[in-house]
Structure formats: structure tokens, C-alpha cells
């Protein structure tokens, strides 16, 4: 998972919906937890975070 920090406006949909994958920084902007790799069981929620980001700031790089 990658968050484009220039697009993120801190809506918080990602860290609210998938707290294992995203976390808020000190002003509520999203950042990926760890190295951004998502285990299979969290994939659905990670994809929802992409679909729900109002700023289209999150992308998935398939590996």
C-alpha cells in the first residue's frame, strides 16, 4: 500500500476502516503501518480503503 502524502487531506477513512494497515500521524493524515505489505486476510479492508479515500490518495502495488 502506498499513500500519496501530497494528495492526503486527512479524512481518516483509511485508518478508521483498516487500522491494521494504516495509522494516523499527529494531525490525522494517513500513513501505512510497517512496510506497507498487506496479509491476505486484510486485503479486503485494504481495498476498501482505496475505494473510500475521498482524495484518491491510496494505491496498491501488486507484488
Amino acid at each position: 500500500m502506498v499513500i500519496d502524502a501530497d494528495r492526503c487531506e486527512g479524512h481518516g477513512r483509511c485508518w478508521a476502516g483498516a487500522p491494521e494497515v494504516f495509522e494516523p500521524d499527529d494531525i490525522g493524515n494517513g500513513q501505512v503501518v510497517g512496510d506497507g505489505r498487506v496479509p491476505v486476510e486484510l486485503e479486503h479492508r485494504a481495498r476498501l480503503a482505496v475505494a473510500n479515500c475521498p482524495e484518491h490518495a491510496i494505491t496498491i502495488e501488486e507484488s
Binding site: G10, G12, W15, P24, D26, I27, G28
Partner: peptide, 10 residues
């Protein structure tokens, strides 16, 4: 930026 910490999730 000045106001955002007041309204942070924390």
C-alpha cells in the same frame, strides 16, 4: 496546520 493538532484523532 495550526488548528489540526486540536482536532487530531488522539
Amino acid at each position: 496546520r495550526m488548528l489540526l493538532p486540536i482536532f487530531s484523532p488522539q
